[in-house]
């Protein structure tokens, strides 16, 4: 049985439909990513799964319990790190951790091995008030507090937002280690490059999932050809010029290159047309799509 399942959940805030028929299944021990921009509905979904709000319709089960009927059971079994820093700012690092342990009837000592890796990094500041920590340290403390009771399922809502690339990499390494210990982890992020580190991802936009699969399968099913080119000169002009080529569906910057999407053109045909439009095609090549390319290629017919 799935460790977490959500069936046809809908939620509205007044006139705004935050979740429009969302379903998901998360296997025990897997790392599941919900990828989408601000306003997609990620946080609303997390609050439903962690029993903090009740959906208008549909249902959700966590560890075999219903999020509405069995609210208290679920709360003992899950750890939740909200997107917004929610620890006690005027308690110290170690006071916050002990508080969370005692709320769950356990002690820091009992489960220290689970958080040790992360806690060691903030231990030099254990006497500092949480409100005085830097962003990266707050994030590490929040993660320790969310799992000091050894939860079966860990819910992390945008743990890496606003975090620099080095700390983001370290954070994902920590998640892999937790997964190796058998914990089920559901994590949301607006960073598309983090999708590849999950077992399964759902791409989410405007209150709906439009793709759920392994990151590899998502990119394999891109279904169109993707090309890259290094364009010199004005990027704005190159974007417009290449997008105007017959048969090109989209052209957008991607790191130091431009990506060109087409369902009809071969590399030879695109080369010829780009060359006659005056572009230096020496760097033009077909390339492999990323999750970000798939996200951008989405249109309304793609909803699950």
């Amino acid at each position: 049985m799935a460790e977490v399942s959500v069936r046809n959940v809908r939620l509205s805030y007044g006139k705004i439909q935050a979740l429009k028929d969302v379903s998901l299944e998360v296997e025990e021990g897997s790392l599941f990513g919900i990828i989408g921009p601000d306003g997609a509905g990620k946080t609303s979904l997390f609050r439903i799964m962690t029993t903090l709000i009740v959906p208008d319709s549909g249902s959700a089960q966590v560890c075999g319990y219903d999020t509405v009927k069995d609210m208290m059971e679920i709360r003992r079994l899950v750890g939740y790190m909200p997107g917004h820093f929610s620890l006690y700012q005027d308690l110290t690092v170690e006071e916050n951790l002990s508080l969370f342990a005692s709320v769950f009837n356990t002690t820091v000592q009992e489960n220290y091995s689970l958080v040790e890796d992360i806690y060691r990094q903030i231990e030099p500041f254990r006497k500092r008030r949480a409100g005085k920590l830097s962003g990266g340290m707050k994030q590490k403390l929040a993660l320790c507090c969310a799992m000091i009771h050894r939860p079966r399922v860990l819910f992390l809502d945008e743990p890496t937002t606003g975090v620099d690339p080095v700390s983001r990499k370290e954070f994902w390494q920590m998640l892999s280690r937790l997964k190796a210990q058998g914990m089920t982890i559901i994590v949301s992020t607006p960073y598309m490059d983090e999708a590849s580190l999950c077992d399964t991802v759902s791409l989410m936009k405007d209150g709906r999932f439009f793709k759920t699969d392994s990151p590899g399968a998502i990119t394999e099913k891109f279904g169109k050809r993707l090309f890259e080119i290094k364009a010199g000169g004005s990027t704005v002009k190159a974007l417009d010029g290449l997008a105007a080529i017959d048969g090109v569906q989209a052209c957008y910057p991607f790191g130091d290159r431009l990506h060109i999407v087409s369902s009809s053109l071969s590399l030879a045909e695109l080369s010829e047309r780009a060359a006659s439009a005056g572009y230096d095609i020496s760097t033009l090549a077909e390339c492999t799509p990323t999750v970000e390319d798939c996200f951008m290629d989405f249109d309304n017919n793609d909803y699950e």
């Binding site: 989408g36 921009p37 601000d38 997609a40 945008e158 937002t161 606003g162 975090v163 620099d164 690339p165 983001r168 607006p190 598309m192 936009k205 004005s234 990027t235 704005v236 974007l239 957008y252 910057p253 970000e292 996200f295 951008m296």
Partner: peptide, 29 residues
């Protein structure tokens, strides 16, 4: 936290401002 399409539209605005002579000092992760 902005979606990938909007992020790129935003950068297009940045390029246009820069081509008009406005200096852009930007931080990003």
């Amino acid at each position: 936290g902005v979606d990938p399409v909007t992020r790129r539209q935003f950068w297009r605005q940045i390029y246009e401002a820069s081509e008009r002579g406005i200096t852009v000092f930007v931080t990003t992760h």
